[in-house]
Design a protein around this nucleic acid. Structure first.
Length: 886
RNA sequence: GCGAGGGUAGCCAAGCGGCCAACGGCGGCGGACUCAAGAUCCGCUCUCGUAGGAGUUCGUGGGUUCGAUUCCCUCCCCUCGCACCA
């Protein structure tokens, strides 16, 4: 057989047409609760890349598996169709974002079909259509009604290259670069629309615990992102400025607060700068919040420590951030590393007020103060130098101090900020607001006037919406006077925060999604996508789902039950990327080897969540495998064998069961690589069988039929072809998953026995230097040894031998029983039950052909009763005796 | 620095208390088939060994256990995420 493979092109075309004709992947609206399998919808950039292919092969394989298992399945696809690249592309090509986007969508849809992905295209959505984005606007206005929308001045991340605002999450790394174009991000003050995700911070955080179907890494990333911290807010008085609120998680260290620090843009800092030249100089020129070095300048002010009454110096310092806590902090250099570094630099006092808790602490005695001159002690401990509070544990002191300081109260801080959704771009959902020229302010566009549709694209450097004069001019819905449309569009993450709900009822005209249907069909059972969305998309989707549950009657508070973050496809250990120029084009692979090969290679190469290396060699061997399988089926059909249902057939039959049992479990766990390995092993076994003997037709066909179906989720086209060859009238996509009634433990033991026996024979032949064996006897251990083993496992008597000898049929064995008893005693704790003598006999009998074939000598599997004592001596349960003649 | 996940034979990579010298793949070696090559199939691939044996291994050093690659601790290294976060 050659490695020429097969005519994949005609096979794939034929079955794609057949699926089309049969509407094989439609999910009718009237079903109860389908298994919802979803891959993160792509941005239509123009071409599928390997990452897409991997992502969507995973969902497709799983969806097909579930369908064959008898589930109803919802497996839709759509397009994350708004976004900046379309605008840039339109400018470059002198077209408009809409046409460019729809061209890309058409191309990618064709490519997906060429890959054989089984989507219900009747549910396709594209977020850039008014039919979709009107619901973004509707949701925005509903959020507004519920007080979850806010317009406020905000310092925003501004990318000068993209001319747009970026969310914090879109700013990458320490250098603060734009996630799309790697331009350094600047800060700008703009009026922005925000969604108040912080209102849901607690629930978003706490519910993470219940997301058991999510990877830990993603859960942890979300926890970090939300960043909840409990602490104390309290006032320090600064003369001339009244009281200033500071937040601290370590109020227990307050006696060690030796100075106070304000953010450069704190109102007091700004006021001081008016009069103090040094402070102004610092704020305007020296402050460098990004730098590693903590910088600051001392003011003439002092702050009063509310506990000690001490007057401590006030600094303006760049390591104090206005958006963390209150933008003002009490500095405790003895117990905070950053404060320590700053105090050393400014030569401020460093005072120990917490001592490590002594190991044998009595709970009262005040320990000695630690030396904090060189390094801060940052752990909790026991208070010292803290007046009445000395001798308390940190934890207790925090509670008492928060209680007893007049201005202090418990406070919770979050790292999570409200979600700024304003973008100064064209290709997005217009924010449905008009600005009244009179006094009505910013007014929501009434529901009946939605959607606010995008005007024609204008090619300009700024925001094209700002240049659309006619579109901008409108009337105020409240007073009827002149008004101007809001020109900001929404962050595209708004679109993706609920698209999974739209698939449920994509044609709904009066609602974003059919509530009843969504309540039945949601949540998504299996969601698959890249780890890059661990925070943003997945957090926003959870937020939307919770809001919809609170205000729109959705009966689910989490959108995705199980999440799989798929690994990268790499080339020689490096991530494939256009900029590195190390991409492999899916299109080329499909042309050369076919979609099935590409899919099968990817799924068998690694577990879905792991990275793996693309290998042309691996692709070729996968292709060859499919070709060989096709040959096997064709040979079988062309010339049906008529072998006996003998022991060899029984071996093959047992292997078929074993493979089905294992592969089914692995498919269920999405560990396709293991399922496919088993399937390929079985294929090899079948081929060996056909080479070795004239196969028993029913057994052989059962094997082929199982292999074809086990492969169908991953290599669907060829599976259809072979299923058809085997004489089936239905589509394999609709076929029943093969079943087997064996448990994996039994399979494991059986395979182990055969494997060990074969290895032992090889060992003996090798070590004894037997050139040409003339006969091999495999002898099952006598029944009494199995009994003895069972007794040994169950017994907890000290003297096992004694216990065994109570059984007369064991005692009768004399020395042999004593010897075996010794062996059992020695391995007492490690014993486990083997197959029964009868099962061992059957297993070895059916595997005897493998040994005969290998050594070219007759093999007898002998029961103990028919064997010589000399061989029996070495035979134990799980380990037959072996006698080789030469 | 904090958090998460890792470190397994030449390489990739399973296993996560006992048939574990450790699945599988790649690479290498030998054999069958072939005129030959390729493909395919069968073995071998830590060391020693003339009947299935023995010895040394799973980042480092300890510990728990009858028994540890598997559990606990120390340290070292890698990858990812977060980070002047008060």
């Amino acid at each position: 057989m050659s490695d020429a493979g097969y005519d994949h092109e005609s096979v794939e075309r034929r079955w794609q047409e057949a699926w089309d004709e049969a509407d094989a992947y439609r999910t009718p609206d009237d079903i109860e609760d389908p298994t919802y399998v979803l891959g993160m919808y792509p941005y239509p950039s123009g071409k599928l890349h390997m990452g897409h292919v991997r992502n969507y092969t995973i969902t497709d394989a799983y969806a097909r598996f579930r369908r064959m298992q008898g589930d109803e399945v919802l497996h839709p696809m759509g397009w994350d169709a708004f976004g900046l690249p379309a605008e840039n592309a339109a400018k470059e090509r002198d077209t408009n974002p809409r046409d460019w986007t729809f061209d890309c969508i058409d191309t990618m849809r064709d490519q997906m079909n060429a890959m054989g992905f089984g989507y219900d295209w009747d549910r396709e959505i594209a977020t850039c259509t008014p039919e979709y984005y009107q619901w973004n606007q509707w949701l925005f206005s509903r959020f507004h009604d519920e007080g979850l929308v806010e317009r406020r001045d905000a310092e925003v991340n501004w990318c000068p290259h993209c001319e747009t605002v970026l969310a914090d999450e879109q700013v990458e790394g320490e250098a603060e670069l734009c996630w799309r174009c790697d331009t350094p991000v600047e800060q700008r003050e703009l009026e922005q629309w925000f969604l108040k995700i912080t209102e849901y911070a607690d629930e978003l955080l706490e519910d993470i615990d219940d997301l058991e179907g999510w990877p830990n890494s993603v859960r942890q990333m979300q926890r970090n992102w939300i960043g909840r911290q409990y602490g104390t807010e309290l006032d320090f008085a600064i003369d001339g400025y009244g009281s200033v609120e500071a937040f601290t998680t370590r109020v227990d260290t307050i006696h060690g607060a030796t100075f106070f620090a304000l953010a450069p843009d704190h109102p007091i800092s700004e006021a001081v700068a008016e009069e103090d030249e040094d402070v102004r100089q610092f704020i305007e020129h020296e402050a460098d919040p990004e730098g590693d070095e903590p910088n600051g300048v001392e003011t003439d002010l002092t702050a009063t420590n509310p506990v000690t009454g001490d007057e401590i110096p006030v600094y303006v310092a760049d390591f104090v951030l206005s958006d963390v806590g209150t933008g003002a902090l009490m500095a405790v250099p003895g117990h905070d590393e950053r404060d320590h570094a700053f105090a050393q630099k400014m030569d401020e006092e460093i005072k120990p007020v917490i001592a490590p808790k002594p190991e044998d602490w009595d709970g009262e005695t005040v320990p000695d103060a630690p030396d904090v001159s060189e390094e801060a002690f940052t752990d909790d401990g026991v208070l010292v130098n803290s007046g009445d509070y000395s001798g308390l544990k940190s934890e207790v002191a925090r509670e008492r101090l928060t209680d007893e300081i007049d201005s202090a109260e418990e406070a919770t801080q979050y790292q999570l900020r409200d979600w700024g959704i304003s973008r100064q771009r064209y290709w997005g959902t217009p924010i449905p607001v008009v600005h009244c020229h009179d006094d009505c302010g910013a007014v929501m566009v009434p529901e009946e006037d939605l959607p606010v549709e995008l005007p024609e694209f204008i090619n300009t450097t700024g925001n094209p919406l700002d240049a659309a004069e006619e579109w901008k001019r409108t009337t105020c819905p409240e007073c009827g006077g002149e008004a101007t449309r809001e020109t900001d569009t929404m962050d595209t993450f708004v679109d993706s925060s609920w698209y999974f709900l739209r698939y449920v009822s994509p044609g709904a005209e009066d609602v974003p999604f059919d509530l009843e249907q969504a309540n039945d069909w949601m949540p998504v059972d299996q969601y698959v996508g890249g780890i890059e969305h661990a925070v943003m998309h997945l957090l926003y989707s959870r937020f939307f789902t919770k809001v919809l549950a609170d205000h729109e009657g959705l009966e689910h508070r989490e959108p995705f039950t199980n999440l799989l973050a798929q690994g990268m496809v790499q080339l020689e250990g490096e991530k494939m990327s256009k900029s590195k120029g190390n991409t492999v084009s899916p299109q080329r692979i499909v042309e050369e080897y076919g979609a099935d090969t590409a899919r099968l290679f990817m799924m068998q190469a690694a577990q879905p969540e792991r990275d793996f290396d693309w290998s042309e060699e691996g692709v070729r061997s996968t292709y060859a495998f499919l070709g060989r399988l096709k040959g096997m089926v064709e040979d079988y059909v062309a010339d049906e064998p008529d072998g006996e249902n003998d022991t060899v057939a029984s071996y093959v039959d047992a292997e078929i069961d074993a493979t089905i049992a294992i592969a089914s479990e692995e498919y269920d766990d999405l560990t396709f690589n293991r399922a496919l390995r088993e399937t390929q092993d079985l294929t090899r076994t079948l081929r060996q069988y056909a080479t070795h003997a004239d196969p028993h037709p029913a057994t052989y066909e059962r094997g082929l039929s199982a292999v074809v179906r086990l492969l169908a989720p991953v290599a669907p086209h060829l599976a259809e072809e072979l299923w058809d060859d085997l004489g089936n009238d239905d589509l394999v996509a609709d076929a029943e998953w093969p079943t087997a009634e064996v448990d994996r433990d039994h399979v494991r033991k059986r395979r182990q026995l055969v494997q060990n026996t074969r290895e032992d024979i090889r060992d003996i032949v090798e070590v004894a230097g037997i050139e040409e064996p003339t006969g091999i006897d495999v002898v099952i251990a006598p029944e009494w040894k199995y009994d003895a083993l069972e007794i040994a496992i169950e017994s907890d008597a000290d003297n096992l031998i004694g216990e065994l000898m109570q059984e007369s049929h064991i005692r009768e064995q004399g020395d042999a029983a004593a010897d075996y008893g010794q062996d059992l005693q020695a391995e007492r704790e490690a014993l486990s039950m083997t197959l029964s003598p009868g099962e061992e006999h059957a297993a070895l009998e059916s595997a005897a052909w493998l040994i005969e074939r290998e050594f070219d000598a007759p093999v007898r599997v002998v029961r103990a009763a028919d064997a010589d004592d000399s061989v029996l001596k070495n035979a134990t349960p799980g380990r037959p005796g072996i006698e080789i003649d030469d």
